[in-house]
Amino acid sequence: MLSVKNISMHFGGLVALNNVNMTVKEGEIRGLIGPNGSGKTTLINVITGFYAPTKGTVEMGENVISGRTPNQVAKAGLCRTFQNINLFSEMTALENVVTAACIHQKINLSSAIFQTKALKRQESHVYDRARELLKFVGLDGKENTMATNLPYGQQRLLEIARALATEPKLLLLDEPVAGMNEQESAEAAELVQKLRENGKTILLIEHHMRFVMSLCDSLTVLNSGAVIAEGVPEEIQNNEDVINIYLGKRGGK
């Protein structure tokens, strides 16, 4: 589904990423972890088109997506949520999702001016799909609530619904449970499992070790801009380099 090949990212004399390789298989939940400053955010920004890499390529299937703009990457089938909530705060929950769904609408000047039947059918489908997605993430009945008035945990869920509206092949979740309490985190974990059961491939970036270890099929660990370990959760939990550099103690508890 996704191949990160020999990615390096330099900012002047600073080497933020150094020859990073990673794959995400179709249907899996791949975790990307590492301490603060390890290069996770930089790698995410390269993958999603916010940065063009200094060296290397990012591919989805057989298509190179590195160097494309974020909206081109989204149209190619990769969409993300953000570490810091990035909603349209003065729009309703429904409007937030509809805005994302419009990425696939086919509208020309004539249809927009004359409000053709085809355009109205498209709009009706977009709104119906947005309502389905809000229900899917647990926000049924919140369609007309302003995004800024939703509780923090529900704003996180709204971000996921908005990302899903782009119909991604691969969903990148950037610290989806940051700031959540334990109940909210457990509900988010159930949602991620449901996403996988519905055929989504997921790249998950998170510091909450219990959340990561319980959900991920495999993990990539970054430190100082380089991959220091890869494997299934049990292997990562028992990797001495990971224990010493990131987890701090055995088991990730």
Rank of each mutant, 00 (worst) to 15 (best):
V15I: 15
A165L: 04
V212G: 00
K117M: 03
V20F: 06
S66N: 07
F114M: 07
E90M: 05
E187H: 08
L139F: 04
L119T: 07
E159S: 08
H207M: 01
G225S: 11
I85H: 04
S89C: 00
T99R: 03
G12M: 10
V46A: 13
V232K: 11
K142I: 00
I228C: 02
A163M: 04
A118P: 02
E28D: 12
V192I: 15
T99P: 02
S110Q: 09
G56Q: 09
I202D: 01
M91V: 01
A112I: 03
L172H: 08
R196M: 05
E230D: 00
I202L: 07
K135H: 12
E234M: 04
Y51E: 11
A52G: 13
H208P: 00
G199W: 06
M9Q: 15
K120I: 10
L139P: 05
V58Y: 06
I65P: 09
I243P: 09
K25R: 12
E123Q: 15
Q72H: 13
N239L: 03
A186C: 02
L119D: 05
R156K: 08
P151H: 01
P70E: 14
G153C: 01
A178W: 07
T92C: 04
D174C: 09
Q83F: 07
L195H: 02
L139V: 04
L2C: 04
G39M: 12
M91P: 01
I160C: 06
L78E: 05
